[in-house]
Design a protein around this nucleic acid. Sequence first.
DNA 1: ATGAAAGCGCTAACAT
DNA 2: ATGTTAGCGCTTTCAT
Lengths: 354, 354
Amino acid sequence: MARRRQAVTIKHVAADAGVSLQTVSRVINNEPNVRPEMKQRVQESIDKLGYVPSIAAQRMSGSRSYLILALNDRERTIADWRARQGTDWVDQMLLGGMLKCAEHGYRMIVELVDTHSDHVERELLAAIAALQPDGIILTPPHSDNPQLVRLLAGHDIPFARIGSKGDGAGLPISMDDEGSARAATRYLAERGHRRIGFIAGSSEYNLSAWRVDGWTAAMAEAGLGTAGLLETGDFTYASGERAARRLLESSEPPSAIIASNDQMALATLEVARSLDLRVPQDLSVISFDNSPLMHFTQPPLTAIDQPIAATASKAVEMIIASQSGESAPKLLTVIAASIVERGSVASFPPQPVR
Amino acid sequence: MARRRQAVTIKHVAADAGVSLQTVSRVINNEPNVRPEMKQRVQESIDKLGYVPSIAAQRMSGSRSYLILALNDRERTIADWRARQGTDWVDQMLLGGMLKCAEHGYRMIVELVDTHSDHVERELLAAIAALQPDGIILTPPHSDNPQLVRLLAGHDIPFARIGSKGDGAGLPISMDDEGSARAATRYLAERGHRRIGFIAGSSEYNLSAWRVDGWTAAMAEAGLGTAGLLETGDFTYASGERAARRLLESSEPPSAIIASNDQMALATLEVARSLDLRVPQDLSVISFDNSPLMHFTQPPLTAIDQPIAATASKAVEMIIASQSGESAPKLLTVIAASIVERGSVASFPPQPVR
DNA sequence: ATGAAAGCGCTAACAT
DNA sequence: ATGTTAGCGCTTTCAT
């Protein structure tokens, strides 16, 4: 393999335009103190030669790396990929994050880190040392990992925390977990449901509790009790199965269940089927993920659509903005979720069998 | 934002171990001519200080960038992401590619480039100049884009071509499109089907033709005619719908259809439904993608499972190997696909209605 | 087997 | 408004 060198460097441009390196650098970085005519001349040389700055060199000289790291949980991400069950978290993150990065000349690098490991810190530190990213996006459950947050806080590198309400450092962005749980609950209550069950997600995710909060609040608002209506899973199908079974086999089963993710919603559907409960006539179900397969279930599932792409995009924006010296907003940014109505919710009292 | 500097550099390690920079560099890169005791001493300092080399600096001094670019078609990738229909190409690519990269200390960067644009070259050149990747993975339809291949060939940068039989430069890897089309066709023929329709994909993808070749060959082997049994779509649902309709509304409709991707298979299912054809009793269907939703269709679709992850992994391996001075194998690497049996294929003569 | 010097492409800091 | 100088962290020469 040949020793790879930059084809066209800033020197070539400088020579071609008959100016100093510095002037070229100023033009590249859109800095002031360059006369328009000069700027144009340089730009022409850049275009003519097809010059593109080397990110490595830029980074070396203490400038930006134009790299943003998207930190995901290794175990869960790989499991999702292998399972091939249509979870498109990463895709949506790339859709929002990559495209926003591209707009600003940045690249997004997906990095998998194991939350559970005792060497999370080392892994992250290594990634930072190797890549020198200009920003980091923490996704759940990393977003509220105190070790990571503390570590990043000490590194003066801007980081966004998706799905966090942000106590501590970093730029918190939430997809309004509490609000959307509340909305889903209200949605059901308005349709006459009085016993609305909730299957919570793993407590390792802070958002799990917020969703429960939203449900609790909406139930209270509607004057409905919650006794015996809350079960906790861990986002897996199996755990959803257990939770749904407990809910539905109780003496006073719910007429509707909100599941904290798609796998648990799927499991709920299956348990209902096994119990000869028709969805939605006998049981209404709302999923907290609008992953692709929600279209294809029987019946198609009404779901809360979390704006993952919009959130990732916003995270990138915030990071880049805080790069530019703007002091971080620090306030919680909330991107609203919405309910996608499909066929898994009935109005109460249930329709008579046709 | 503070001027970011490397926390621990090679200098710190050298000082700590009481050796020259060079020796540390040799240890990092596993070069010869370091005494074991020396090597160990240096390694201890590295571990103690938590030193990780800066990729930017390594790249600057003419060494590797430890970056591999995965080039995907912009338009199609974004469309897939937005549609949220469970296409997990990118996920599988990351699963195979990223993990293999990680094993070797590389990172994979997903890059979107528009095949149709007249500035493909410029886009790719810009990415190369900016990132100086050590290798590039071309995915369809880029893999056989002559412009791209020519451009890369002139850049002495190793590149893999997924889904290509590789005329010209680069490392070709195929998922055995012809073989798996042949296998699927045989699979149907063995079950008594005599009129086996085929919906081809866009001719912009070379693999589309190879799949047709496989089907044609298998039909010939089985002594079956192909007249009126081939329709061409472009991988979209709408095109699949049109193709399936032409096939099924003909005077001599097929008893089985192989669709070149999941969307066209889905469309075929829907057309069958609209024509009151039961699947699989009246019509058998095999999809050429085993994307997540194939589990959830009615009935679940038998599909060809393309080993995308394994292929991406292999592509990374080949690139890294060819880095290490090994002259490229140049031969076509084939990763075998397999058929996942689900519920959309009936044996012929069709089972009587139960 | 080890070390010293030079330089990669770029920008920050300091002239002018 | 523009140019000069020094240096980022590392690897490549080229010594020894």
